[in-house]
Design a binder for these strands. Structure first.
Lengths: 204, 204, 204, 204
DNA sequence: TATGAATGAGAGTTCATTCAT
DNA sequence: TATGAATGAACTCTCATTCAT
């Protein structure tokens, strides 16, 4: 009862996190979070200012935190292909290690402007933009150094990021044609093969 | 009063369309649509059964209709690269001709399970799954015929579709880092270059 | 087109009448009446001020009119039993000749104060009160003349009227236990037997 | 604040009950109930799922509950006349003890098909049908045993039930001619006299 | 005269948030 | 600290009535 100060906050966050992932932000009600956390509805407001605030906290700790080390990690790599590999691995780890079932991140990205909390919107936009810039610089560097072909870096960034985002979230998308997404298929898809495609393209 | 060729139904659809794109489905209220269309709240219901019905109509006419001819169009092409080119062109046309000021389709895809109207959900899932299958078969065919490398068709489909979706919608995404998306950059990005990337990859 | 002035009014009334009986007042919408009458919604308001006004007219012509001659008819009878017989016959004729299916009259009686139109409320109250008074005077007269026992006329009036009302409307009541109300049973029930019960009671 | 033994649930039920009786179900709005109960609109929904649910609860506790013991009570009586007496007494108690200021039950009966809630409709129909059957069996038994004349039991049931219903509710009917329903008259009317009329009829 | 498109007040219901305990 | 009863603004949808044509 006394050392539970930090713990209860965590419990709320965990409950909210799972519910957001499971039912989406709008379908998750405060009472659901409270019930799931085993506390009273009012208690939620002892720890968080609002539903938005819970979301923001979750975003920062569960999502954004996974990318904090990214620039440093990438800087340790010698060439752009390796950097891109690390990037993909990080994405895959983040989405899987945080038990990203469903489309949490994508959800955030796409619907971010449905929220009214400016801090939240800004956080989301910032993360996505940061990731975009990182990928852009990898490609730009690769093109400049001759490691990559003379492609338009912006175009390539879009292509690669779109692919990566889709790749890491496809399993959780509600509309993915289920006949393709069997257990075997899912486990067969690897980041290495994925990188290979981006680097080498489809042509034999 | 003079240029009122557009029926009121059209006016409502346009108003709803822009609002849905601008603020999202849930943030758009019936009164917003009515106000935006310059009519009374009740009038909306003279033309549509419900908010869902407006959405469904919009989806069918603005989104799904653009893909109806896709299978036929693709069947006219002789090789898979050309098919993929046509696919990308169709996507680009659809998203631009309908003045997609935001990523309407992506939005739909990601949030589709937030809707309760089964007809609507089904329509959305069907379109996305159809498109996915089309791309899958293009790639599968290419791999089988030797036109493409021996890549995993599913992985490649995900990569390409993710890239394409991102590509056609990036200009309208709320979070795209604005410094990259100047007018000049936007016009510089072409489907041909994009296809080149997918086909040939980044390696020189 | 020219001699249809009265006719169209009738058509509206008939349509409304059947709908009121069939679905009840509140479940009948103006558009239903218009559709059923084969005219436009606005046209209804050319002939009637409001939905209430239609109801009032219907009440006066279809319901109240059936009782206008009642005092005169009863005055022709020589004794109270015969008067009561006539009363019952009139009720039965009114409810059947006007194809009173369902609980139109009862409906009116019970829900009359749900209407806001004072004229309507008054009409309904007046009819019911008139009928009550008529029955009361029949019984009072019978008691005074020695034709009936020395019962409380008010109590007897209530008993008889309740029975009569129930009797004439039971076939149309939604809750009547259906196992009792077969076709044969319905035709077997006669006003004469009913009167016999009231006059002679249950004791052998 | 001091006599708040009554739970808020009770307060809401009472408020709703009086309003339903006073203005009818459809004319009573949730805000009316809330205002009358001295609470906010939303609070009503903390205690009841819907307007229908309030009604159903009211029906079960205030109306149906009064008849639960009826079969047992009647079974203790030795002859049919006594059973009928008990029946009438029960009706009178139910309608008076619950401060039936209007004919709530009759109201329910007549309008029951105006509700859409199946559980509600069924409850109402069941109660009325049950009561009808009880009376029918009393009379049938009386006829078979020779205690009553050889009358049609169905016809007699209708006559008696109609009379009883009217009798117990007449004081609250909006249309009852007020000159008859003075305080003295009301108190003069007894169930015993009423039964006498049914049993012995009007003939001397 | 006849119309039906347009209206908007008003309904039941939801739920994030408040606050007395 | 913890609660949950209470709140009311806001939502979607209904429909009797109006009025320009």
């Amino acid at each position: 009862m006394t050392k539970d100060k930090r713990s209860k906050r965590e419990v709320i966050l965990d409950a909210a996190y799972n519910l957001f992932i499971d039912k989406g932000y709008w379908d998750t009600k405060i009472i659901d979070i409270a019930d799931s956390a085993g506390i009273g509805k009012g208690t939620v407001y002892e720890y968080f200012e609002s539903k938005d605030a819970i979301f923001l906290e979750l975003f920062k700790t569960k999502v954004a935190a996974g990318y904090e080390m990214l620039p440093e990690i990438l800087s340790r790599e010698n060439n752009c292909e390796c950097k891109m590999k690390k990037y993909i691995e990080t994405e895959m780890e983040n989405t899987s290690s945080f038990t990203f079932s469903r489309n949490f991140l994508m959800d955030l990205m796409m619907k971010s402007d449905a929220f009214r909390n400016p801090a939240l919107i800004e956080s989301i936009h910032k993360l996505v933009a940061d990731k975009f810039r990182i990928m852009f610089h990898i490609i730009e560097e690769g093109v400049n150094s001759g490691e990559f072909r003379k492609v338009d870096p912006l175009l390539a960034t879009i292509s690669v990021m779109g692919g990566v985002n889709f790749f890491v979230s496809i399993n959780f998308m509600p509309f993915a044609p289920r006949e393709f997404f069997t257990k075997e298929n899912a486990s067969a898809m690897s980041g290495v093969d994925f990188l290979d495609l981006i680097i080498n393209g489809l042509k034999p």
